[in-house]
Design a protein around this nucleic acid. Structure first.
Lengths: 157, 157
DNA sequence: CTCTGTGAGTTGGAAAAACAAACCCATAAG
DNA sequence: CTTATGGGTTTGTTTTTCCAACTCACAGAG
């Protein structure tokens, strides 16, 4: 029999969520990407309690997702900006927003619209870099690399 | 002056996170998508405490992201499967996994690989459905639809 | 100079969640 | 009859979250 796993499945989804999956973290990143990276703006726009925001910001800076940028000496004032790694999470946010727009509200009531340079409203699509096709569940096969972690097979509704 | 917003920014990212942003929710969805939707599998594979898992599952079912599927009468046994809405969150997970693979570990140590039907390993890419270009931060402009919510402008690192 | 305001946090105590381990119930297998 | 399995619930403890108030450094108005 396969060795029984003692802890949860090793997976970069889990690892990523351990960093950015805490409450408010992704909202903070959203604001940073929008250019609203100052402490009081973050408090207002995310709704996070100030102390929680403090710990989230520390974590995100430590993880290399945000940088603390001094925008005024005397008095010292800081702003949090996304790093390259942070900016690369933006597509995740866009995809999540599109999902929310589709499933969480009736057509027409979107509170924020993103425009793409191409002139159209952004409709993010996740594609396979190799073949260019839109990613669909049926086209995927997961292969865990660690022993002891198996899959039952594709789930049908 | 613009009306000061009392609560946090209205945004489908926030709404989506309110549903699936709690600890373990997306890991549960991952397992459901992998076909491991039974209670004990979920406990083992996500590491969630059983009571927490119970409340997450209820929430995800109520939200229409999972369905509770009876796979055996006498004894009654259930399995949680992703709905269409749940499956449409899978690309978010794939994008997040790719981000984690890139930024959270050295090249080569990925614990799970997804294969696409095209024969290649899946490398998810987020593109603009209108023009097909890969989505990059510099190409986006956010336009909040609700009054009182403004943006500072694009942030540069 | 004092008075008020702003930005960026700390501090302290109450309330809510998470956690761990034990327990429950129906059925099935040995 | 005993043990095992699946899908949870219960109980008690430990962490987090939440909220409001407070601090500190400086700036501008009067």
């Amino acid at each position: 029999m396969a060795a029984a796993p003692k802890s949860s499945r090793p997976c970069s989804i889990a690892d990523a969520l351990a960093l950015v999956g805490e409450k408010y973290s992704l909202l903070v990143l959203r604001e940073a990407c929008l250019g609203n990276g100052r402490f009081d703006q973050l408090v207002r726009n995310t709704g996070a309690p100030r102390d929680v925001l403090t710990t989230r910001l520390r974590r995100l800076v430590d993880a290399g997702i945000l940088v603390r940028h001094l925008y005024s000496e005397r008095p010292q004032r800081f702003e949090y900006r996304p790093t390259q790694a942070g900016l690369e999470l933006e597509p995740v946010l866009m995809t999540l927003m599109a999902w929310g727009d589709r499933h969480l509200r009736g057509e027409g009531a979107r509170p924020m619209v993103i425009e793409h340079t191409c002139g159209h409203e952004l409709a993010p699509r996740v594609t396979c870099a190799a073949c260019g096709a839109t990613v669909r569940h049926e086209d995927l096969t997961a292969r865990p690399q660690a022993p002891g972690w198996t899959l039952r097979g594709p789930a049908a509704v």
